[in-house]
Simulated scan of single mutants.
Amino acid sequence: MTLLLMAAGSGSRYGKLKQFDELGPKEEFLMEFAIYDALKNDFKQIVVITKKENVSFLNDYLSARLPKDIKLNVLAQELTDLPDGASFTGERKKPWGTAHAVWTARNVINGAFVVINADDFYGQAAYKKAADFMKSDDNAYALLGYTLKDTLSEHGSVSRGVCKVAGDDLLSVEERLKLVQKGDVVLDEDTGLEFTGDEQASMNFWICRPSIFSKIESEFKIFLNDADRIANSELYLPFMIQEMLQAKEITVKCIPSGGDWFGVTYASDKEKAMESLRNKTDKGQYVSPLWN
């Protein structure tokens, strides 16, 4: 089983590269806690997608810490990484998006894999549930969901994918761009829609199969032939999965994570994240330092 961490973001709202901020009790990166939790649940391969300038540093950093029997791939997400026969000659500063980040790993992943954000904490229970699912189901995709009201920030509005489910089947994920707690409800300030807060939210913890790579490649070719999309848009992983779901090419389960999530969207979220990691370490959920 493989854990893929997306660590190519710029952290515009945070003010620096969140992926390499030293939040742990022994100055560990947040992604190290995700890797630690995955290894405790029989994951054997770690893939990190980052910017080209960070590959050498991150490869050396993680290689010095991870057990020697764990396969590590640190890959660069680059604008020049295109499907065979495709070309791009324009100017663009932003990466091609999260789907392209996943596609970057197409040559190193052969089986089921988990995709997460490197700058989010997902809780130990999520990795146990993901591992159990991948061991018991050979075909389905899955989303590990989190209770919406537990994913908000005290320091500003957040964007969340709100899940529609039927039983344990995921029907859709609808992106809501400006969610805030207002009294007893969660309000989307962008649309005026209200939610109870008990809905499942996507925090981008996906269980994928290798079939996702061919889907992304085919969509990427279409994308590259659309001048407007090249200029203003990105390829998003949730959209790819949702298109496959709606076309009945795959089934997607929604699995309540059973754990707590936190992220560092804003610089002011940092202190709370550090306190949470200290508390979890003090309670014995993590050793300190994480790696010996």
Rank of each mutant, 00 (worst) to 15 (best):
T2Q: 08
L4S: 09
L5Q: 12
L17F: 13
G24V: 05
P25T: 07
E27T: 14
E28N: 04
E28H: 06
L30Y: 10
F33L: 00
I35C: 14
D37A: 13
K40S: 12
F43E: 01
V47N: 06
I49D: 05
I49E: 05
I49C: 13
T50Y: 09
E53N: 11
S56T: 10
L58R: 08
N59A: 10
D60V: 00
D60G: 08
L66E: 11
L66G: 13
I70K: 09
K71G: 03
V74L: 10
A76N: 02
D84C: 02
S87V: 08
F88L: 05
F88S: 03
T89A: 15
E91I: 08
P95T: 02
P95Q: 02
T98D: 07
V102C: 03
A105K: 06
I109L: 11
G111F: 14
V114E: 07
V114G: 13
V115R: 15
N117F: 02
N117G: 11
N117I: 04
D119V: 09
G123Q: 09
A125C: 01
A126D: 00
K128N: 06
F133D: 00
M134V: 04
A142E: 11
L143H: 03
L143G: 05
L144P: 07
G145H: 07
L148R: 01
D150E: 10
S157R: 11
S157M: 07
V165G: 01
A166S: 14
G167D: 03
D169A: 07
L171W: 04
R176L: 01
K178F: 05
K178C: 06
L179V: 03
L187G: 01
F195V: 00
T196H: 08
E199P: 06
A201M: 01
M203K: 11
M203Q: 12
W206I: 00
P210C: 10
S214P: 03
K215A: 15
K221V: 15
L224E: 07
N232T: 14
Y236V: 02
M240L: 09
M244V: 03
L245V: 00
E249P: 11
C254I: 13
D260P: 02
W261V: 00
A267R: 09
S268C: 02
A273I: 02
L277K: 08
D282M: 09
P289V: 04
